[in-house]
């Protein structure tokens, strides 16, 4: 299933699998798809999430403590694929759990589960030769991060190596919500656009309807992560799916843009 954004801007929803527990993650995922998320990033919890801010760190810690493993996340993906054949499914992980699982075994299992793409936070294009061979073998889309600090020659390699979409990081920093969308983002998307026709999704700090609409002015999609994870943290298990659905629907409500 190729990754498709049904509406503009497209919506990529991230959450940490197993936070607060796997059955709740399943319900949240289904609710997010039904509320209009085009693509789900299923975050594999890791003990040392060095690119993440406090919100996702806490979620990851809860999920690791609950025993959630990469195998569990793949089983969840298979379940979601059965339930919602058209949703985009991306596995989002640090490299070590994938390496420990075995790169080939992981790609085979991800394909079998119906996963569309893979994003490894600490995988850069220079290190990706072997990784790409495996992803291509199983027709999984490699999604790479592009940063405001990446010079053009790197953006070109990132764009060429990516499939599905390119993930543009809105600012230097770790994941987390912010009041104002960084001005770095638009410039980065413009620079990336020279090298690719793939959809470009902007993430890091996109946390409300205003940001979402602003990103829609210059990019194809927005990734919402910490805002969702934070809402899950504040909700009870029973409330979480409906709060997330409400939040996602609210993102598409018209807002007056301050620009």
């Amino acid at each position: 299933m190729p990754i498709r954004f049904q509406s503009k801007p497209g919506l990529v929803a991230y959450f940490t699998a197993g936070d607060p527990d796997l059955p709740t993650t399943r319900e949240i995922a289904l609710a997010a798809i039904d509320a209009g998320a085009d693509v789900l990033e299923l975050g594999v919890p890791f003990s040392d999430p060095l690119a993440d801010g406090p919100v996702i760190q806490r979620a990851s810690e809860r999920a690791v403590k609950g025993g959630t493993t990469l195998s569990d996340v793949l089983a969840l993906a298979a379940d979601l694929r059965r339930e919602r054949p058209d949703a985009g499914l991306v596995i989002f992980s640090y490299f070590n759990p994938v390496l420990r699982f075995g790169l080939d075994r992981f790609c085979a299992a991800a394909k079998e589960a119906g996963v569309d793409g893979v994003l490894i936070t600490d995988m850069i294009v220079e290190e990706a030769d072997d990784y790409l061979v495996h992803l291509h073998r199983y027709q999984l889309a490699p999604i790479f991060l592009a940063a405001p600090t990446s010079p053009d020659d790197r953006l070109q390699r990132i764009a060429q190596a990516s499939q599905g979409f390119v993930y543009a990081i809105s600012r230097t920093g770790i994941t987390g919500t912010q009041q104002k969308l960084a001005s770095d983002a638009e410039q980065l998307v413009q620079r990336l656009r020279k090298f690719t026709d793939l959809p470009i999704a902007v993430g890091f700090g996109v946390s409300n309807a205003e940001h979402f609409a602003a990103v829609g002015e210059f990019a194809d999609a927005a990734v919402i992560g910490s805002a969702i994870v934070s809402l899950i943290e504040q909700s009870t298990r029973e409330e979480a799916p409906s709060s997330i659905a409400r939040f996602i629907k609210g993102l598409r409500q018209p807002v007056a843009l301050a620009r």
């Binding site: 690119a51 600490d122 991060l145 940063a147």
Partner: peptide, 9 residues
């Protein structure tokens, strides 16, 4: 080098 892209530059 296994780092977030932001650090590569």
């Amino acid at each position: 080098r296994y780092v977030p892209e932001t650090l590569m530059a």
